[in-house]
Simulated scan of single mutants.
Amino acid sequence: MWFKQLSIYPLNKAQLPTLETLADKLAAAEFAPCMGLDWDSVGFAAPASFQPQEMVFAAQNTWRVALKKEEKVLPAAVVRDILDDKVQEIQNAEGRNVGRKEKQELKDNITDDLLPRAFTKSSRTEAVFDTDHGLLLVNNANANKAEALLTKLREALGGLEARLPRTNQSPGSLMTDWLLRGAGEGGFELDSDCELKGLGDAAATVRMSKQDLSAEEVINHVKNGKIVTQLGLCWQERVRFVLTQDFTLKRIQFLDVLQEEAASHGDDMASLMFASQILMSEALSTLIAELVLHLGGWAE
């Protein structure tokens, strides 16, 4: 229920679909399993297991959606072994070599024969529309996977005004400044993890974990020309996370105060998911708003 990593997309609040439109459009783009010779299948699925027919889980002004992907698993070694046996059989029976073009045709036929019987693996990417703050919060820090979900949302909705999280000051510059000073600002405190890189293609990378980031030995890396590319932070003693130079959040931990507040709303699955989604979205969106303030605002 609680996101572990985050890609952020600011939205045009004035152009957001209604909840009903979103639900209808995603239902029309519902996931269907891989069939026959399909290698993969992608579509929207119910984000809440206790509401299997609902494509959107709404908690006040936050709407959770889920994109499901199913892929066929056909190990190359299996195809290669069958192909080798087939080639050897032809060579023994007909006394001739099998050329490259014929091998490729044999390989294609073997693949087509095996594909309908191949195992499948599935994955899900979840996201929450925070309509109050105008943000799409994607539970994945991988740019390709986050963009894949955004692309499918745009296809289903016939367009969605979402942009990359560009700010007037780069996150790397702000993180480097905070590390150099040995302290964050506002509600942000330095935690105990960071990554620093030097300039140039062959520059060294230094990673630190469970380290006092205000220590002189850490600060000296910045003084010697390295920039911070990832920085562990704690926000208002409510959320721990690692901020990256791409403005994604990794290794998010929602601390006890939030977990306990969600649990106080009930212990059944629906109540927990409803409360945790509201608390999580509010915490993340408020955290992001404060970060953007320190970064000089959103770039035009």
Rank of each mutant, 00 (worst) to 15 (best):
Arg163Pro: 12
Gly172Asn: 14
Thr229His: 14
Ala183Val: 04
Trp178Ser: 01
Val222Met: 06
Ser173Ile: 04
Pro165Thr: 02
Ile227Leu: 07
Lys223Pro: 01
Arg181Ile: 02
Arg163Gly: 15
Arg154Lys: 14
Thr229Cys: 13
Gly225Arg: 05
Thr167Glu: 11
Val222Gly: 01
Lys197Asp: 05
Leu179Thr: 03
Ala204Asn: 15
Val228Phe: 13
Glu217Thr: 12
Glu195Arg: 09
Ser170Ala: 07
Ala204Gln: 12
Cys194Asp: 00
Lys197Met: 05
Gly184Trp: 13
Trp178Phe: 12
Ser209Asn: 14
Glu195Gly: 10
Phe188Ala: 00
Leu196Lys: 02
Glu216Gln: 11
Glu185Ile: 09
Pro171Phe: 12
Met175Ser: 02
Met208Tyr: 09
His221Glu: 06
Lys223Cys: 04
Thr205Gly: 11
Gly200Ile: 07
Ala183Gln: 11
Glu161Ser: 09
Ala203Asn: 08
Ala202Glu: 07
Ile227Cys: 10
Asp177Lys: 07
Glu195Asp: 02
Val206Ala: 03
Lys210Pro: 12
Leu180Thr: 07
Met175Gly: 00
Glu189Thr: 03
Glu216Lys: 13
Ala204Pro: 13
Gly198Gln: 03
Met208His: 04
Pro165Leu: 08
Glu217Ile: 13
Gly182Gln: 04
Leu196Thr: 00
Leu213Trp: 05
Val222Lys: 10
Glu217His: 14
Glu195Tyr: 10
Asp191Lys: 11
Glu216Pro: 11
Asp193Asn: 10
Pro171Met: 10
Arg154Val: 14
Gln169Met: 13
Leu160Asn: 02
Asn224Leu: 13
Asp193Lys: 15
Val218Met: 10
Gly158Thr: 08
Leu179Trp: 14
Gly158Leu: 11
Ser209Ala: 15
Leu160Thr: 04
Arg163Trp: 12
Leu157Glu: 06
Val206Phe: 04
Arg181Trp: 15
Gly187Lys: 15
Arg207Ser: 05
Gly198Tyr: 00
Val222Arg: 03
His221Leu: 15
